[in-house]
Design a protein around this nucleic acid. Structure first.
Lengths: 238, 238
DNA sequence: GAGAAACAGCGTATGGGTTGAACAGTTTCT
DNA sequence: AGAAACTGTTCAACCCATACGCTGTTTCTC
């Protein structure tokens, strides 16, 4: 009669607050919330690689192995940290275009605050509360378009992928921003090879300095393309 | 007068075939090509986690540390493996729409052949020969649209992100395909929580079985949205 | 109340990974 | 011939996840 947690993917039950009831034995020294919060702290400070059982345990003053009393595997921890760190989506404005824009920008902002979330390997469809909340609000906003549920899901996948991808690009550019010396060296190395190697378009792009600047309005660009594309579809509705 | 390899990002010089000339000392037992090929072999067989210096060295019958005579760091190896494994892009058909479609599908196919490429962390703009070749052919195909170089780049980023994202989704779905038992358990766990937790749209989605099927034509869907969006932009040109 | 059951955290251990420094042997330049 | 440069090796440090068995604590049950 009890729910068979064994069959569920790692982190699912815990993320929804379903934790094994304990009857006897000593009280746990910590809570899962505490452990997850520590994981997020490390992620914020030192990046995703720092979200390790060893570090969290050390920070809490416990052996690494003690973590396994709370979490079944590292993957489970990561799932929980991910859901908690992404947080709740914002309220979306009315109208599917405005809502989509707000949703994507909110996601990009969230990833800008916690870039290490982009390093978390995605192992399946989202099933944790906060991640599903993001999905829910966007699908609700798309419900007014008249498209089918299936198409709405397609739109969501498209927008979500774009947001993640853009956030990732922005992060890379931000990281490279601190090394103009290297950018110079790269240019000197690359341009002659592009010219001789049969990359005419890239050569001209590089020489026009188009390659490195911008991106500020690339978000707007991609966003507009996607929304226009969806609008075309809506326009075809009977 | 020699090129200062020290300033360049890991793997750049090697990927372009620039390797330090060696004058004296014993001949190296292997070539970088061999090492990279071994890395790809392991990736194909056991996934990206198997692309490690240790495994490659062991397979070649050498100590792990010997690898550092060929490669400066693991990251360098990964960059080389990535570029080699992604290979060259196909010839694109005439017309920007057909070309875009072919380019995205080719990318999706490539990722389907080597799903582990999706696990490679992207640490910056592509600069290696094959990756830039993909960029080059797509930009060349977009050159006929009349859009600016900057806009072309925006389109490319959008399409590239979509292809990667779709390939990733497809992989996840393929992986989950083998565990219908678990899917059943997840549904039983999730649906009541969605209903009680205020996820009406997701609940109906789940109950309508829309959540798990399809995706076969989701590629077409996203593709059409993107291309239509770009077409709207082109239509606005003076 | 006594005993048993359940559970926490620890110690020890295994196996995987990256990377550094020092070293012996080999090849080639001077 | 000798020096310089380069090979792969050993030794070593450090990070990580995970398994097993132990001790001690708490609580349920008889």
């Amino acid at each position: 009669m009890t729910e068979d947690r064994g069959e569920l993917p790692p982190g699912l039950a815990l993320s929804w607050g379903v934790l094994p009831v304990q009857r006897r034995g000593p009280k746990p020294a910590f809570s899962i919330e505490q452990i997850v919060a520590t994981g997020i702290e490390f992620g914020d400070r030192y990046g995703f690689e720092a979200v390790s059982l060893q570090r969290i345990a050390g920070h809490l003053g416990v052996t690494t192995n003690a973590m396994y009393r709370y979490v079944r595997s590292k993957e489970e921890l990561v799932v929980l940290v991910h859901d908690k760190a992404i947080g709740l989506p914002p309220e979306l404005p009315a109208g599917w275009r405005a809502a989509s824009t707000a949703w994507i920008k909110a996601q990009v902002d969230r990833y800008a605050e916690r870039p290490w979330l982009l390093d978390i390997p995605l192992r399946g469809a989202p099933m944790t509360p906060n991640l599903l909340r993001w999905t829910e609000v966007m699908l609700a906003a798309l419900a007014g378009t008249g498209l089918s549920q299936h198409d709405n899901l397609g739109c969501l996948v498209l927008m979500n992928g774009f947001a993640r991808n853009y956030a990732n690009l922005a992060r890379q550019l931000a990281a490279n921003d601190g090394t103009p010396v290297q950018a110079e060296a790269v240019g000197q190395f690359l341009v002659p090879r592009l010219m001789e190697g049969g990359y005419p378009t890239l050569t001209s792009l590089y020489l026009n300095q188009e390659y490195e600047d911008g991106l500020d309005d690339d978000l707007e660009f991609g966003l507009e393309r996607i929304l226009d594309g969806i609008e075309v579809l809506i326009g075809k509705l009977p």
